[in-house]
């Protein structure tokens, strides 16, 4: 499951509801042929997470998602022993212990005999796989999305690094597990902190910015096929002008879409300052931002 060339990436992703620039498509294509992870950076809401989802849809692969946060550790990301199950099993097989130690001459013998069976309690049966182990042990290629890695601690980053270099993990009691198929890995970052050089070196880097005019227009048309070209163009121009104002929070793509959707629902054909004022809460999350846009309505709607 992969792409043949950059064009095909663009077509298939568009088929999956995601419009890409040539640059994004190039990186996606390279990652798919070189089996390298992609590190996606960019402001909020430009479609970083969505890119991974779209790839999984486009290729018909399962998406496994690991959401990172401060304090995320291996037991949440890789695997955890199911203690409760282990202990209950211990109880249930209590009676069997007589059979196991039958013929033991002394205590030491008995303990040795029990020990030779302890593997049974550290087998995959008692492991609860978390996203990373799921991705590694999958029989088929999967898309592994490690979302917002910048939120995780540096230790976790180091661990991830190890995993991404040879796609294998070691579970002390069970040995080393190597991926049968290398997963399609995407890491996203909001730039909360800098990622280490070592991690960057393993990845193909892409910065997704707010889209070019034409791209955003195509996104709106794709999401809302019923919208007229003129209205879509007006919306995109207005949003782009708003992004120039230097707000605390710039409207992102999903806000453009939401705004377009509500304008269509209101059967508006052109945007004047009344319409803008009435629907402003779709694009501005802060009061001060909304006021700023109102004050600059003339230049926004130009």
């Amino acid at each position: 499951m992969s792409f043949n060339d950059v064009r095909e990436v663009q077509e298939k992703l568009e088929g999956a509801g995601y419009v890409t620039s040539r640059e994004i498509a190039t990186v996606v294509f390279l990652a798919s042929v070189t089996d390298k992870p992609i590190l996606v950076e960019g402001p909020a809401g430009v479609g970083k997470t969505e890119l991974a989802k779209a790839i999984s849809r486009a290729l018909g692969l399962q998406l496994i998602r690991l959401q990172c946060y401060e304090g995320l550790d291996e037991s949440k990301a890789l695997y955890e022993w199911e203690y409760a199950k282990q202990l209950l099993y211990t109880q249930m097989v209590k009676e069997k212990i007589g059979d196991v130690i039958a013929g033991a001459h002394n205590l030491k013998d008995a303990v040795d005999k029990i020990a030779s069976h302890e593997d049974a309690f550290f087998s995959e049966r008692f492991i609860q796989p978390r996203p990373l182990l799921q991705a590694i042990s999958s029989e088929e290629r999967v898309v592994l999305l490690v979302d917002e890695v910048d939120k995780a601690d540096p230790e976790f980053e180091a661990f991830l690094l190890e995993l991404l270099s040879d796609y294998q993990v070691t579970i002390p009691e069970l040995g080393t597990k190597t991926a049968k198929v290398i997963p399609y890995v995407l890491l996203t970052s909001n730039n909360y902190r800098d990622m280490s050089d070592a991690l960057k070196r393993r990845c193909i880097h892409i910065y997704i910015d707010y889209p070019e005019r034409d791209l955003e227009f195509r996104i709106v048309k794709l999401k809302l096929p019923e919208i007229s070209d003129t209205l879509a163009a007006r919306i995109v121009d207005a949003v782009r002008a708003i992004r120039e104002l230097g707000l605390k929070k710039n409207p992102c793509i999903s806000e453009t879409i939401d705004w377009a959707r509500s304008l269509v629902a209101l059967s508006v054909e052109s945007i004047d300052s009344r319409v803008l004022a009435d629907t402003l809460n779709m694009i501005c999350k802060y009061r001060a931002d909304a006021q700023m846009v109102k004050a600059n309505a003339a230049s926004v709607l130009k």
């Binding site: 950059v6 070189t34 990845c203 193909i204 880097h205 910065y207």
Partner: peptide, 29 residues
């Protein structure tokens, strides 16, 4: 990496060419 990736794309398309260099050499915004 960069050189081997260039072999995989259409180098005559400048967007693709630049993307490859950028993805490999400028690793942060």
């Amino acid at each position: 990496d960069c050189i081997s990736q260039l072999a995989l794309i259409n180098m005559l398309n400048e967007d693709e060419f630049r993307s490859v260099l950028r993805a490999n050499f400028a690793k942060s915004r």
